[in-house]
C-alpha cells in the first residue's frame, strides 16, 4: 500500500492527515499500552502471540464482512455458517480417512472452501435475485445453518477422527519461524482482500455499489453481480476460518461460532468501514479484531473487572468508536 500508492495518485495532494482512517490503529496502540501498564505479563511474547492467534478467526471472517458491508450489505449468518462448514468438513474428513489417510485433511479443506463459497452464493442470490433485505435473508440462513450443525452433531459434539489429530494439529498450534500458522493465514487473506479492494476494478465497483447503487447501475456496473460476489468472498473467508478452527478443538458443536457475527460486524465497524457501505477498510478490520481480543485478554489478566463482563466492555467499545467517528467526521 505505502509509498507506491501515494506517488501514483497525485490527487491526494493537499489533503491533511486522515485521522479518521488512522483512528482504529491509534486505539489499538492505546489499548496495548494500557494492557502493558496493567499487567507486565501482557507483553510477554507468549501471551501476545496467543492473543493474536485467537483473533485470527474474527479477522479472517471480518475481511469477507468488509466486502459485504462495503457493498451496503450485511451478513448475520457467518457464525452459524462457520459451524456448518466445520461440521461438513469433519464429516468429509472422517468419511475419507479410511481410503485417503492424512490426505483426507486436504480433501476436507477443499470441500470446506466449496461449501463456504456455495453458502455465500446462496445468501447472495436470494438477496439480489429475490430482492430481499440482506438483514432478513441472513437472519433466515443463520437459523438454517445453526439447525444443520445441531442436527449433524445430534445436539452433541462432532469430533474429527483420532488418526487425523496429529497431522492436522499444527495448522492451529504450529508456527513458521516463530509466527503461528493462523497468523500467517490471516496475513495472506488480508493481503488478498486489500489487493482486491484497492487495486482491482472489482474493488472499485464494490465501493461504488455501496456508495450509491443507482449511480453504479447508471454507470453500467452489474450491481447484483458485485453484491453476490461479495457474499461468495464472505463464504470463502468463513471456510478459511473453519479450516484454521477445526484443529483447535478438534470438534464442532451446536455452539461453535455462536455470536461471532456480532464480533465480526463490531470489528469491521470499529475498523472504519461504513455500515451503510461505500467505504472499506480491510486493515482497519484487522485492527478491530485485535482490539476485541486484546480487551478480553487484558480483562482476564487484570482481575479488576470480572471477565464475565467482556462482552459489555466490547459493546461499549463499538459505541464509543461510533461516537468518535461521528465527532471527527462532523468537522
Amino acid at each position: 500500500m505505502s509509498s507506491i500508492e501515494i506517488k501514483a495518485t497525485p490527487e491526494r495532494e493537499g489533503i491533511s492527515i486522515p485521522w479518521g482512517s488512522l483512528a482504529p490503529f491509534i486505539a489499538l496502540a492505546a489499548i496495548v499500552v494500557l494492557g502493558a501498564l496493567i499487567n507486565s505479563n501482557f507483553l510477554a511474547a507468549n501471551n501476545l502471540l496467543n492473543v493474536i492467534t485467537r483473533s485470527a478467526f474474527i479477522a479472517i471472517i471480518g475481511v469477507g464482512a468488509t466486502f459485504v458491508i462495503a457493498t451496503g450489505g450485511l451478513d448475520l449468518s457467518v457464525g452459524s455458517m462457520m459451524a456448518f462448514v466445520t461440521g461438513i468438513m469433519i464429516l468429509t474428513m472422517n468419511g475419507l480417512t479410511p481410503s485417503l489417510g492424512p490426505w483426507a485433511i486436504l480433501a476436507g479443506a477443499g470441500v470446506a472452501l466449496v461449501v463456504g463459497a456455495l453458502c455465500g452464493l446462496l445468501n447472495g442470490l436470494i438477496i439480489t435475485v429475490g430482492r430481499i433485505e440482506p438483514f432478513i435473508v441472513t437472519l433466515g440462513t443463520m437459523g438454517i445453518f445453526r439447525a444443520f450443525i445441531t442436527f449433524m452433531s445430534d445436539g452433541g459434539s462432532l469430533s474429527i477422527d483420532r488418526s487425523l489429530r496429529e497431522a492436522y494439529r499444527p495448522v492451529y498450534f504450529g508456527d513458521f519461524l516463530g509466527v503461528p500458522y493462523p497468523v500467517l493465514i490471516t496475513l495472506c487473506v488480508v493481503l488478498i482482500g486489500a489487493f482486491l479492494l484497492y487495486r482491482t476494478k472489482y474493488g472499485r465497483r464494490v465501493t461504488a455499489v455501496g456508495s450509491n447503487a443507482d449511480v453504479a447501475q447508471f454507470s453500467g456496473v452489474h450491481v447484483g453481480g458485485v453484491r453476490t460476489m461479495a457474499f461468495v468472498i464472505q463464504g470463502i473467508c468463513v471456510a478459511v476460518a473453519a479450516i484454521c478452527y477445526v484443529p483447535r478443538l478438534g470438534a464442532a458443536t451446536p455452539t461453535t461460532g455462536q455470536l461471532w457475527e456480532l464480533q465480526v460486524i463490531t470489528a469491521v465497524v470499529i475498523g472504519g468501514t461504513l455500515l451503510r457501505g461505500g467505504k472499506a477498510r480491510v486493515w482497519g478490520t484487522v485492527a478491530g479484531a485485535l482490539i476485541l481480543e486484546i480487551i478480553a485478554n487484558v480483562m482476564v489478566l487484570s482481575d479488576m473487572v470480572s471477565e464475565y463482563l467482556v462482552a459489555a466492555v466490547q459493546g461499549t467499545i463499538i459505541i464509543i468508536a461510533m461516537l468518535a467517528h461521528r465527532f471527527t467526521s462532523a468537522r
Binding site: E11, R204, T207, A208, N212, D214, A216, S219
Partner: peptide
Amino acid sequence: GKGLLLNDRLGPNLTLQ
C-alpha cells in the same frame, strides 16, 4: 442521485463507467 458518487473523489467518479 444517479449520476455521481458524492462521497467519492473525482477520479473514481470519472472512470467508473
